[in-house]
Design a protein around this nucleic acid. Sequence first.
DNA 1: ACTACAACTTAGGATATTCCAA
DNA 2: TTGGAATATCCTAAGTTGTAGT
Length: 679
Amino acid sequence: MKQSDRPSGVSSAVQCEAGGGGTHEDVKVDPDERNDGQQKPGSPEINNNKEKTRSKSSKQRHNHKERTADVKLCGEDENLCESVQVKKRRVKDEESPEKHDKNQSSGRKRKKTSSEHEKAEKNKKTKKDGDQEKKKKAEESDKWKWWEEGKSSDTQKWSSLEHKGPYFPPEYEPLPDNICFYYDGQPMKLSPATEEIVTFYAKMLDHEYTSKEVFQNNFFSDWKEEMTKEERKLIKMLSKCDFSQIHKYFVEKSEERKNMTKEEKQVLKEEASRLMEEYGFCLLDGHREKIGNFKLEPPGLFRGRGEHPKMGKLKKRIQPEDVTINCSQDSKIPAPPAGHHWKRVQHDNTVTWLASWLENIHGRPKYIMLNPSSKLKGEKDWQKYETARRLKMKVDSIRKQYRRDWTSREMKSRQRGVAIYFIDKLALRAGNEKDDESADTVGCCSLRVEHITLHRRLDGQEHVVEFDFLGKDSIRYYNKVPVEKQVFKNLKLFIKHKDPEDDLFDRITTVKLNKTLNECMPGLTAKVFRTFNASTTLQDQLNKLTTGGMTVEEKILSYNRANRAVAILCNHQRAAPKTFEKSMQLLQEKVRHTIIIIIIILKAVQRLSEQLKKLQLQETDREENKVIALGTSKLNYLDPRISVAWCKKHQVPVEKIYNKTQRDKFAWAIDMTDENFQF
DNA sequence: ACTACAACTTAGGATATTCCAA
DNA sequence: TTGGAATATCCTAAGTTGTAGT
């Protein structure tokens, strides 16, 4: 039962026609079909099983890149010679400038009123309303309708920027005297720095990964680095360390937090909002904009996703001396904490970040940036969807081109053609090369031979490719896809004379692939296909699933089904909620119960059947949503105007589709879109 | 052309808050 | 009123892509 309740996720759910043309119109989201007893992609058990030991370093693997002979391919298969002459056709550029033309976006309402005027209007109105109302309205009128202004420069991100700098997490509070670390059975007082690291480990004790060898080794060697000489001399083995008392202490503490009175919680809340008030906003070009992550990341133990080779390493506390501040020259420079100084203060208006530092795990930069509701993020987001819409106009010719590449005499063109086909048809990510310092995950270009299995026929279908690999965040991608004969032949060719751990596409890289795409359409890269296919799927599904005469609840179910189709396409998953089975049974029980009641009390039929209907909708919705995360696509891939237009057209309150945060982020779309907008 | 790096988007899990039925 | 489920928010890891340097 544990296994059987796992839907296949991707496998049978997304059935795309093998055919370059209409790609995703046959997305099926039939809950019954999805329960085929296959393991849920991405579940922990799976990830463990799926762990593939890389027998070669990526450098070694890289050498295999050149392995496929770049000879004339004639003779390898009977179709190879047919298009020897065909040169890569130049696709006409449709030279439309990268800038989105806001006035041409369909459904766009041009507000004639200046924002000044609106402000005055609103303020006037508030006079007679209550205090609460007044505040709300005033806030609203403060909101910056940046989308009503002309497009701003691509390179210069701001002309003035002022902020308070990042918020530093509180210093370490040593443990009380009665709480102790034990080594080899003996209590041992540790130096504060050493003790702090112990608390990181102790807090995680009931997590499964503290039992992993990699985690323990990384932790122990990083911990030893931070010990005093004396401590290092004494503490030789992690297995002799006893953190249980400390662990218990923190469990109790968190219990206490949970049991705080309303008043105590209120105090905490006010403290947080004071912090937000002070550090959570910046002044950008005269507008108060919300910051996304104004709190610096506190120290702790790194836990990457999947089988990460660096799990358990110490993530060090960030000091002011590590932080670079970015703000405008003439602004009030944020003050570093007393007795400290910043690493650097710069005034670079070609970037959007307010502060940055290097994290010590990978040595990569991290940034403090604005909230998605900000102009800087919103405009970029809008632009992204406009690029995806431009792809819509171009996609037919691109599909034609990659199909031609399938029969090219050049190996690299064939590989590129198949790779773009996968990216288009399956919404795979580009798949950059990764080093050995991170989890072994892949995308399209980094697929290895071992990640696909070719089936001449399978389950009554021809030319089936079985994908099985760990993608971003070590989420498993498992899918059986019928592909066109020529693709199948090419794949056979690509894997010939290769070992399982060799690259499937050894003649191409993401950079080359994106370069090709860019020549087809300015601004086109691999990830645009995900946005494009996601939004196209949503639009198509909404058009198909929504009919007149539906109740709002039914329409919402339609919307969620459409949303789900996208999530399945993009392989957005989540762990099935812990108590799913139980709550589902409960829900089913309720449905049954309601049915019985209806039979017994005929008089109440009208009222109760409505109740039943809602429950059933909820049931279906939840079942279908079991392992599907809708949020990501909603937030990142789906042109919000599709949803807004749909809401307006079908009189569905937009609040039913977007929560507060999402309404803030998509304020531009909500404001500008009318019911006729089509993606 | 290749590499390294910087900057930005996308992502799932953890935690906090809200909601709803008993 | 309360406890557990649902939902929202927070957090930060992990991708992609553009660019500068060689």
